[in-house]
Design a protein around this nucleic acid. Structure first.
Length: 291
DNA sequence: TACACGTGGAA
DNA sequence: TTTCCAAGTGT
């Protein structure tokens, strides 16, 4: 009998009583809608995704609908979710599904990973939550849960391929239950086994948590370095795109000057937006979202 | 492996 | 006010 026996079942039972009622988890939501939600949720809080996802799915219910939209429409609808290259890649994925998969979302992990913007996590999440195909689904929540519950460490390290086998070892039997376990592990990390102040008092597996049994030791490795934002190219790109999103049509370069003082940085960021396909230059030299 | 890539709410 | 951090991917 493994020391982790029954952990997966315990998490599923907890999930059945504690899960949030998120719109992309409701019955009848198709794999495309799940895929859209997963891309929007990359590095982005649930509360910010919910309204955008609802409007997005109402406007573009199928991959073919999104594939027919212009990048400009897609970038505008993406709004302030952040990392707008995700919006372009999601549209490119819609095009690929329409052209190569008959407009359907594949259930095969390798086929999903071949799509733009779909990586190790998202491919398995779509297979599992969208199609009901059991997969180990490892995001930042799950890596933290496994680090504490199984390995007795306060924090997860850098993502490793072995994360997938760590999680797969906890999954209960049965297709439906294994899928529910995958979402349950994420939910525990999102609601209980959170990064800053874990709520161990309400944790369904606190009595079997290796980290608690070890006395909840502090993180010993190197401190995770936090990303700066103020003054970075990321901020400047965001400012520039903000101007273009708000404009009705193309804007003159002088309008972009107001977005950021440092001309060299502004120019570099505009170039990178052009290279990314988030901005295009019109024949008369003005700038706009790509038509 | 490490870094770039948006945004804004909570502590 | 500053820092942390949120369902990652691509290079």
């Amino acid at each position: 009998m493994s020391s982790t026996a029954g952990l997966g079942d315990a998490l599923v039972d907890w999930y059945d009583t504690a899960a949030r009622n998120l719109p992309w988890r409701r019955p009848g939501v198709d794999p495309w809608a799940v895929l859209v939600s997963e891309v929007m949720l990359q590095q982005t809080p649930v509360a910010r995704v919910e309204p955008v996802w609802a409007a997005w799915m109402a406007r573009w219910p199928t991959p073919a609908d999104l594939a027919a939209a212009s990048p400009a429409e897609v970038i505008r609808m993406w709004g302030k979710l952040g990392y707008p290259r995700r919006a372009l890649r999601l549209r490119e994925t819609a095009v690929a599904l329409t052209e190569r998969h008959g407009g359907a979302v594949p259930a095969d992990v390798a086929a999903l990973e071949a799509l733009p913007g779909i990586g190790t996590y998202t491919a398995r999440a779509v297979a599992c939550f969208g199609h009901g195909t059991p997969q180990p689904v490892v995001d930042t929540n799950v890596r933290r849960v496994v680090a504490r519950l199984v390995h007795g460490r306060a924090e997860a390290g850098t993502a490793r391929p072995s994360d997938l086998t760590d999680v797969a070892a906890l999954a209960p039997a049965g297709r439906e239950r294994a899928c529910r376990f995958s979402v349950a592990a994420m939910e525990l990390g999102a609601l209980v086994c959170v990064a800053r102040t874990p709520r161990c008092a309400v944790c369904p597996v606190r009595d079997r948590c290796a980290w608690r049994l070890a006395g909840s030791p502090a993180h010993d490795g190197p401190a995770r370095r936090v990303q700066r934002f103020t003054g970075t190219d990321r901020q400047v790109r965001g400012r520039l795109l903000d101007v273009l999103r708000a404009a009705e049509g193309p804007v003159a370069a002088s309008s972009l000057d107001e977005a950021w003082d440092d001309a060299a940085q502004r120019s570099r960021c505009l170039d990178s937006l052009l290279a990314d396909g988030l901005v295009e230059q019109t024949p008369d030299g003005r700038f706009a979202l790509p038509a």
